[in-house]
């Protein structure tokens, strides 16, 4: 490995890193939003919408992101819907992640025992107060490990963005390997930048899980 080449490549990778992280986190925010909306829809059994959510979740949980992106980026323009690679990446990640987030949040909501609802109602709380002050905080705590796992999973999934010509980390690495055969240096930087992207999230995730549990349940 040539340190000179590595030094030369760092700015190129940094640029790709920023793009990957940016689109990754926009996608994750979108995924969380979709997840919350869809989970509430199924929890409150809103007719038609709840069934639509089930279809969406099954469809996106059982197909790879790469295929979803191909469909959105290459398939949709054929029928006149054209979106830029960046937007496509964020939307694709958001839709995939949304289906995972829905499941995590929904299972948290459904894990709350009926007795909690009954005791809140017998204290005279309204349905709104019950949901906001009793169900939601508990459900969120139960969902946190799932949400953290989803965030890590989605950040890893950003690695397929290169397939739709986004100049992300993978694209950059592949490009440099193809052009200059500096394979080891490129791979080294690829790994380093993914570690920078994910290790803090992984560690913070474990910490957050512990903290939230402690704050909520005191153990």
């Amino acid at each position: 490995m040539d340190p000179e080449i590595i030094r030369e490549y760092i700015p190129i990778f940094t640029q790709a890193f920023i793009l990957t992280v940016k689109i990754g986190w926009i996608g994750i925010a979108l995924a969380f939003l979709i997840g919350v909306l869809c989970a509430f829809t199924t929890y409150f059994k809103i007719p038609v919408a709840a069934a639509a959510v089930r279809c969406y979740v099954e469809l996106f949980r059982n197909t790879p992101l790469l295929v979803q992106l191909f469909f959105i980026y290459y398939g949709l323009p054929a029928v006149g819907i054209r979106i830029s690679a960046e937007v496509c990446g964020a939307i694709g990640l958001g839709l995939l992640g949304g289906s995972y987030m829905t499941e995590s949040i929904r299972s948290g909501l459904e894990a709350i025992p009926v007795i909690q609802t009954e005791s809140a109602l017998s204290l005279g709380m309204t349905n709104g107060q019950l949901f906001r002050d009793v169900i939601l905080p508990q459900a969120f705590t139960i969902s946190v490990p799932g949400i953290v796992a989803n965030v890590i999973f989605l950040l890893k999934e950003t690695s397929v963005f290169s397939a739709i010509s986004l100049m992300d980390l993978m694209f950059t690495a592949k490009d440099l390997i193809g052009l200059y055969y500096n394979t080891m240096e490129s791979l080294f930087l690829l790994v380093i930048f993914y570690v920078i992207m994910l290790l803090p999230v992984s560690l913070a995730g474990t910490l957050i899980e512990k903290k939230v549990r402690y704050r909520m349940f005191g153990d």
């Binding site: 009954e118 017998s122 349940f217």
Partner: peptide, 26 residues
Amino acid sequence: REKIGMVFQSYDLFPHKTILENAILA
């Protein structure tokens, strides 16, 4: 329901709130 208090067989306290918070929430 405000005027009818109820205590259940299983411990139905809100697990995410402290003892004091459980008492003052409603």
